[in-house]
């Protein structure tokens, strides 16, 4: 089935606010489907193997892969992450992953022709230097940042640096966000808007929430020119297909990380590629 019918069906045309990453989501809509965004943290099980896994994300087994890779930077105090991602990022930190490694991963993903965005807790960016990080991310070929603990309220330096270096800035909107906050947060975004579909931290759930379509509509009503991605809780092709009916992108994280955790000793990426195939089918309506 085509997924565009159920959304507004309009193409996203001529908006500078699409940036680079929003264009990927808009192109998917042009194909009558949702985009697939896949998250993996750099450094788990090692920097080198995490980059291999990200390459696998861009391919699956059939070459479709994800449309955009969300590269997570491990952090000591990840208040938005559930157990699966905490497990992986804790290991990565124990193995000494550094902020500069995320730029290495960005470069590797960008070399595949797929876009890379970085999901990073704010203190790490501040310590690298906001402008220096933006400069190096742009030089590595990255499209922008997703900032789980930075809202536009405190984002002055990042908004400035992202403008200077031509990067997208994706902020999160939650079901609990007030109308004023949906408006101000969405207006601060470039690229797309990240809708957290259920209240809570990351982690695969058996059901996605009714709150998600409502939230997507609330965002669209104030910013019809921006695509909306829905994350937190999607793990199966059926869930991906369900979310693809109302969102412009389906974001999957914990379900992919779990594939790596289960293959921690073998380092075999077969299961990961299989899940990516299924999800890529899901966003094309093949639940």
């Amino acid at each position: 089935m085509s997924t565009a019918d159920a959304t507004t069906g309009r193409p996203f045309e001529g908006s500078a606010r699409l940036g680079r990453s929003g264009r990927v989501l808009a192109d998917a809509r042009g194909e009558g489907r949702a985009a697939l965004v896949g998250y993996l943290p750099v450094g788990y099980p090692s920097v080198e193997h995490s980059i291999e896994a990200m390459r696998a994300l861009t391919e699956g087994t059939d070459g479709r892969g994800v449309d955009l890779v969300e590269i997570g930077m491990p952090y000591s105090d990840p208040v938005m992450d559930g157990l699966a991602i905490q497990h992986a990022t804790t290991r990565a930190l124990q193995h000494g992953v550094r902020t500069r490694d995320v730029l290495k991963a960005v470069e590797a993903v960008a070399a595949t022709g797929r876009q890379a965005m970085v999901m990073i807790y704010w203190n790490l960016v501040e310590h690298y230097g906001v402008d220096a990080f933006a400069r190096d991310l742009a030089a590595a070929g990255g499209s922008g940042l997703i900032t789980p603990d930075l809202t536009p309220d405190e984002a002055g330096p990042w908004i400035e640096a992202s403008d200077v270096h031509g990067l997208d800035r994706v902020f999160l909107v939650a079901p609990s966000s007030t109308p004023d906050r949906v408006m101000s947060t969405t207006h601060a975004c470039r690229g797309w808007v990240y809708a957290t579909s259920v209240m809570g931290v990351t982690g695969a759930r058996s059901e996605t929430s009714d709150a998600a379509p409502v939230l997507v509509e609330r965002i669209r009503s104030v910013a019809p020119e921006l695509p909306v991605g829905v994350g937190l809780g999607v793990s199966t092709a059926a869930q991906a297909a369900e979310v693809a009916r109302f969102a412009d992108a389906v974001i999957v994280g914990s379900a992919l990380v779990k594939c790596l955790i289960e293959a921690e000793s073998s380092r075999d990426l077969g299961a990961l590629r299989g899940v990516v195939d299924a999800l890529a089918g899901g966003v094309r309506g093949l639940g």
Partner: peptide, 20 residues
């Protein structure tokens, strides 16, 4: 009004908590 003690303080939180 933003919770700043000059350079310190503020609100660095997930958006989900902003309303609360």
């Amino acid at each position: 009004a933003h919770g700043h003690f000059d350079a310190f303080g503020g609100k660095f939180v997930p958006e989900a908590l902003s309303a609360a």
